[in-house]
Design a binder for these strands. Sequence first.
RNA 1: GACCCCAUCGUCUAGAGGUCUAGGACACCAGGUUUUCAUCCUGGUAACACGGGUUCGAUUCCCGUUGGGGUCGCCA
Length: 438
Amino acid sequence: MTIRTRFAPSPTGNVHIGNIRAAIYNWLFSRHAGGEFLLRIEDTDLERSTPAAVKTVLDSLAWLGLTYDGEPLYQSTQRAHHLEIAERLLAKGAAYKEDKGGTGKGECIIFKMPGTDISFHDEVKGDLSKKAEDLKDFVIVRSDGSPVFHLGNVVDDITMGITHVIRGDDHVENTFKHVAMYQAIGAPMPKFAHLPMIVNAQGKPYSKRDGAAYVGEFQEKGFLPEALFNSLALLGWSPGEDLEVMDRAEMVKLFTLDRVRSAPSQLDMTKLLWMNGQHLKRRGLDEIAAGCEAAMRRQGLWRDDIAPDYFRAAVACMGERIRLYSDMGEQAAFFFDEEFPYDEKSVKKRLLKDGALGILREELAALEAVEPFTAAATDAALHALGERTGRQMGDLVHPVRVAVSGTGVGPGLFDMLATMGKERVLRRIRRTLQTYGG
RNA sequence: GACCCCAUCGUCUAGAGGUCUAGGACACCAGGUUUUCAUCCUGGUAACACGGGUUCGAUUCCCGUUGGGGUCGCCA
């Protein structure tokens, strides 16, 4: 029998990380078993389930590389079938009609619980059971004739041939109802696995107030999909042997449900950031440059006059200082903008002290003579100047750094100078001298 | 409130009765490398919620307490 799992989101316009984590586990589990991973769009709430909302789901899956088999099943197309099953349950006496009053008007169809205790084996939580008196009958078809979640969910899982239902912890209580339905319908029972919630520092369900809660937000911030994937997979699952940084293939190979924990866990943004850096290292310069460019466009920092080669060189120069694509725009915009701002503190500390401007003038002269303008050559020139004047390298390096970048922190100075090129460097130093030198 | 579930360093976790003076990672602290920052290297601080059992022996098994979470819709 082929293992078949599914992801069954109801499109609301946002895909929560807890939800996508469930998708990741379903995907990992089926790919590990050589089975299928199906997609079902639970779009019965027509108001919220707009084409745009569906697209958000599809985009999130695609971004994370969660490929699904076959075409997505839209639940709204199954309505007739749902109602047919409801009729059959009615005929069997497993359901009954009643006017419960209250919200609805008229009769609805109610599923009759069997009156016995119900138990099932959860693949991560173990044996779960509930007493008959704690189980209540529930509506499966509203008085307006529309099927309720429980009916559609179970019937669709049966028609799709789902063998493993892997979903969030918030569904455990529903599962007792679902188990009863499978029995009443006479369909083979899938295996169930309930995943712990992702919570915030207060132990409450993780929400966007805790940083970012939707897949799209992480994408916008410039996170790598494989880093989010890796981090989310590790929230509740561990392959053992102290393995942490993995690509999808490694996780597929190692993933098993019995190594999934049943305690809720917090998402730590700092560790996610570290994870992102780890995965960034595995990417090539071209990919990183492309990601940084996309991020800068989103940040409104991209300029069409940035030469591709210069951009790549600047990204390479920043090296591992880039942990997030958005870092390029936030930390290294000075590479491309001649109107870069000067950091006040750095100016005070490095330019307006102890004759620093005088040193900068000498350095300008020394750099003017450097040809070709390589990192090694500028390095040598400033070292020579240092020897000649008996100054520490620190006294020489900092004024130049602030003069060409406006900030006291950044890549290694000589690499940065070589990357910027002689013309740009000299121009910036001259302008700085004019601005602050009087 | 009722029912169900959960409980190892600040965080994510390893640990499936002795191998645990509890291991790893992030974060943090100290030192080193570096012109700055980041990276990198070395070292360090830091946890089995509590109380009872079971056992020769419990982080590991059982019960209770405490704490936390989930569910109690003609939402999904």
